[in-house]
């Protein structure tokens, strides 16, 4: 092969650089995200109402698509109510529906304290998974914590 030595050497260096993260993290403890589903707001609900807007499986796999659908429906079509597969209605609002349950007093305090990124300011609900997966949704550059937050 023409200049074979150089090519193979460069390839090895290239592959080496590419795999640094794997070697770097090798053997380290890999603690998965801790999803906190028992916030005081959720526990205060009657057991029958404790399910999220859809079943946990659907929410785990599809919450991003559902949020996108909600956004289109509420902002563009003016449809502000979501009726789920069990016929239950929910107000379409990230701030007043989702975050009402999925936040704790500590997070609410961080909102009033002027923190601009409530969910990401803590290790709580959204952040725990998203940080783990290195996904940075931009929701909270605009949306703010729940209703009680302002108190």
């Amino acid at each position: 092969m023409y200049k074979g030595g150089k090519i193979i050497a460069s390839l090895i260096i290239f592959v080496g650089l590419l795999t640094i993260p794997f070697f770097y993290n090798m053997g380290k403890v890999n603690a998965g995200p801790e999803i906190n589903l028992d916030t005081p707001a959720i526990l205060a609900l009657a057991p029958a109402d404790q399910q999220c807007v859809e079943s946990p499986e659907v929410m785990k796999a599809n919450h991003m698509q559902l949020l996108n659908q909600w956004r289109e429906a509420a902002v563009r079509d003016g449809q502000s109510v979501y009726i789920n597969s069990q016929g239950k209605s929910f107000e379409i609002s990230l701030q007043n529906t989702c975050l009402n349950c999925h936040s704790t007093e500590a997070e609410k305090a961080s909102v009033t304290g002027g923190m601009s990124n409530p969910a990401f300011g803590s290790t709580q609900f959204c952040a725990s998974c998203h940080d783990y997966n290195a996904v940075q949704p931009l929701c909270y550059t605009c949306h703010i914590g729940s209703k009680e937050a302002a108190k």
């Binding site: 698509q65 079509d77 003016g78 502000s80 109510v81 009726i83 789920n84 597969s85 069990q86 107000e91």
Partner: peptide
């Protein structure tokens, strides 16, 4: 293939008070 099942039976509507 995997996308489909997002809340098939769900609907959107207006608030009654709207």
């Amino acid at each position: 293939f995997r996308k489909k099942e997002v809340a098939e039976a769900a609907e959107y509507s207006l608030k009654q008070k709207a």
